[in-house]
């Protein structure tokens, strides 16, 4: 039985670790389906993390923090849109700039306003058990004894898939990343759709970052996103540009994180660094295995100009 409890704890941690990745990767999936690649997710998540922490700390309300984080990161997403969509600047470069700004800004805000605060912890987000369902062995505690943000992440992916595949909006998003000009001549605004997508992507990255500070660590630590923004980028590829694919990939990556922490804690004689690099190696391997049948949107990274 002990191994079962171990497994249960491991899977529970997996889901917890996957949640911030899911938010960010689903958001980025939308952005990329619309044709905009944002490698600045790391910076956006940091902005979300620090905003959520600061607002939650000041107001005492964690949810207000999460909301503010989504709003702040969405704003930066829109600014990224101004540079890349309206001005048509290179998306990779603008994303790199966004990472630097997010890294600097988050640590600046934290040091400037919380440098002298001694007790910096905030109320942790409570676990909400879902009655009956949490009684199911193993699955119950793993899926139904989590905080609300985890539930939100788990619901976000299928919802996002539904919108993408089964609504006129989803149809428009899928076309604009594939063939923007066809989308424009059909009577839609390429610019508008792309702005909506990057704003949504920003908001999701912000909430993903908020999760780290208010639901996971209960505090802000400089550079606490620790590469998750880049992992989310890999997850989008790994999940083949579909929201549900992103969920599965997030869970896979969450699992390697959870396993790595567990092994580290139990001082198992495997160098933990190898587990640390596992997700990155897995991404490359997956890219190799799935090559050729790429689902990458055709117009990804290509600025759209209305000049004909």
């Amino acid at each position: 039985m002990e191994w079962l409890i171990g497994l249960q704890a491991l899977l529970q941690a997996t889901v917890r670790m996957a949640a911030p990745l899911t938010f960010t990767a689903v958001g980025e999936t939308y952005g990329e389906r619309a044709g905009v690649i944002n490698i600045g997710l790391e910076g956006l998540m940091l902005i979300g993390a620090v905003t959520a922490y600061a607002v939650a700390f000041a107001s005492g309300n964690v949810w207000l923090g999460v909301f503010a984080a989504g709003l702040a990161a969405a704003t930066f997403g829109v600014l990224f849109g101004v540079v890349t969509i309206t001005l048509g600047a290179n998306q990779i470069v603008a994303g790199a700039a966004l990472n630097l700004i997010g890294l600097g800004l988050s640590s600046f805000i934290y040091r400037a306003f919380f440098g002298s605060v001694t007790n910096r912890a905030i109320q942790p987000l409570e676990t909400v058990k879902i009655p009956l369902l949490n009684q199911i062995p193993v699955v119950g505690p793993v899926l139904f004894e989590q905080n609300l943000l985890v539930y939100a992440a788990l619901l976000l992916a299928p919802l996002a898939a539904l919108v993408l595949n089964r609504t006129m909006l989803g149809l428009a998003l899928r076309s604009v990343g594939e063939h923007p000009k066809a989308t424009a001549t059909a009577g839609l605004s390429v610019i508008g759709l792309r702005y909506a997508a990057v704003a949504f992507g920003g908001m999701m990255a912000g909430i993903g970052g908020a999760y780290l500070s208010v639901a996971y660590a209960n505090q802000f630590v400089e550079n606490m996103v620790a590469g998750r923004g880049f992992i989310a980028l890999a997850i989008v590829v790994f999940g083949r540009w579909s929201p549900l694919g992103a969920l599965w990939a997030s869970l896979l990556f969450g699992f390697t994180f959870a396993l790595q922490l567990r092994l580290q804690a139990q001082s198992i004689p495997i160098a933990y660094q190898f587990l640390q690099i596992l997700p990155y190696v897995a991404t490359i391997v997956a890219m190799i295995l799935l090559r050729g049948q790429s689902a990458q949107p055709k117009a990804l990274g290509v600025p759209y100009t209305e000049r004909t």
Binding site: G43, V82, V83, L87, G88, A89, N90, V93, A94, A96, A97, L98, N99, L100, I101, G102, L103, G104, L105, S106, S107, F108, R111, A112, G115, E222
Partner: peptide
């Protein structure tokens, strides 16, 4: 007493402005 992370912000802003200006 100004956080040194200011450098990252300035560096990021310089690049963001530069690519914007060039695109413009």
């Amino acid at each position: 007493q100004i956080p040194s992370s200011m450098t990252f912000i300035l560096q990021g802003l310089i690049i963001a402005f530069l690519v914007s200006f060039r695109a413009l």
